[in-house]
Write a protein that binds this DNA or RNA. Structure first.
Lengths: 249, 249
DNA sequence: TGCCTTGATTGATCTGAGTCAAAGCTATTC
DNA sequence: GAATAGCTTTGACTCAGATCAATCAAGGCA
């Protein structure tokens, strides 16, 4: 799939700049947008919206109208099953996009809940579509980004199927670490925003098993864990724990 | 996401009709293409290509150049792990599209192997892109379809995480049944093209566990299974076996 | 300050699925 | 049609992770 670039003489003067405080550059580069696309996106985004801990960014079943760029904070996405239990489908950190769950339909398929006080910029999808009528490559590119995120998650889930608890947890930690370092945070020292139960739900384990696996990794001096604070002491041995399934892509 | 329609005065006369024998209409309607799009796709597609049992439609790591419409037969997609074991990532039947695994990159991420003598039409992606430069909605639409397929699979995998063997198998059978009936085949009576081992790999179970779960469902008179021939005797009880996680979307 | 809630850890026990092994069945080949 | 290789089924045993339960630590708040 050859990637198209935007025309040099691109006129975006008609786009209302509604988010003066938003510099989306450092935010969106990791997902593969080029300068012009970031500019357009930044101009589309509304001012930061505050979401308190426990607050919702979007609900399952609600109409899909916007993508959200997380400016600060941490979110989980989850679906509520018939029996009331909730299944965590993903975690999303500062600098990532939310709302991708609705990419293939008209409705959000999951809830997005803030795990700490957070801020997000809304990017109205209608405007994105409007612009992509004049700049087809933008939407094309966007779909690619979205698919990539989904495929990445999908790949991880597939591999989890055949993994043991410890392997799953190692995979999870390394995935978090990789995403944090991409955004300029510490690779070896970070704070888990979610509970053991949420980690367990995401990985298909019970909270006790998660706790035990953490303890085991600590006993082996691979990580140090104090409640929610994680320190990776030996990343190469942690990678070995992931097993053969290896690549997170 | 409002769905766009193709313009009425659409000129596709410049597109070489390369697949006179292909009527893709009944093939692609289920995935949501409209008449004109099917026409375009059909004209893009090359003549049917035969793939013998065990043959490859595409390889992991090979350059992504085409999508494939399965005209007859049955495929599995799988990835080869470092240790040589193979992980089945999906099953694909007559009327479905293959090659979607490469949607977010330049390379195929998995092998596609025929589980019986099959036929497929190749749809060169470059041509699809060329056309979508004049008809932006086509690529847009296509990306949506592809994402939907991926999201669907992703959803299933997520739910599998917390499921027991019997629930996984029920989910698997009902998924097959639903896809078969969509394409005009019997809902209650069908032939499994894959081995117990392949089912197990896909569901994260061992082949013995798959076999035992089949036997148990048969003992309970929910299905009748004779080697690869499956008959669903009581679909409502089979649905109950799926558990609360329910929806396959 | 002490009460109460929420989350984390750890132990004991149980169970579902993996493992190993044997035997039966099917399909393919010559 | 006999020989062979590849699937499938079933049984016995084992073990990782679920379940049940107790304890502990860290806020939040009256």
């Amino acid at each position: 799939m050859p990637s198209q670039t935007l025309p040099d003489d691109l006129d975006i003067s008609h786009i209302r700049s509604s988010c003066a405080t938003c510099s989306l550059r450092e935010l969106c580069l990791p997902v593969g947008l080029n300068e012009e696309e970031i500019q357009i996106l930044g101009n589309l985004a509304s001012h930061k919206r505050k979401i308190p801990r426990g607050g919702y960014l979007h609900h399952a079943g609600s109409k899909f109208q916007s993508l959200f760029a997380i400016r600060s904070g941490f979110f989980k996405t989850c679906i509520l099953e018939q029996d009331g239990r909730q299944q965590v489908t993903g975690f999303h950190m500062t600098g990532e996009l939310l709302g991708l769950d609705a990419i293939s339909g008209e409705m959000h398929t999951c809830d997005a809940v803030a795990l700490e006080d957070s801020e997000a910029c809304e990017i109205p999808f209608a405007k994105l579509e409007e612009i992509s009528r004049t700049i087809p490559s933008l939407m094309h590119h966007f779909h690619k980004i979205m698919s990539r995120e989904i495929v990445r998650d999908h790949g991880v889930m597939l591999l989890l199927g055949s993994m043991k608890a410890e392997e799953r947890l190692a995979t999870f930690l390394l995935n978090l670490s990789r995403r944090l370092v991409m955004r300029g945070y510490s690779e070896y020292n970070f704070n888990l925003r979610m509970t053991r139960e949420e980690i367990g739900s995401y990985l298909g384990l019970k909270l006790e098993t998660v706790s035990r696996a953490f303890s085991k990794l600590q006993d082996e001096n691979i990580i140090t864990i104090d409640n929610k604070q994680v320190q990776i002491n030996d990343i190469s041995r942690l990678k070995m724990k992931m097993g053969n399934s290896a690549c997170l892509s």
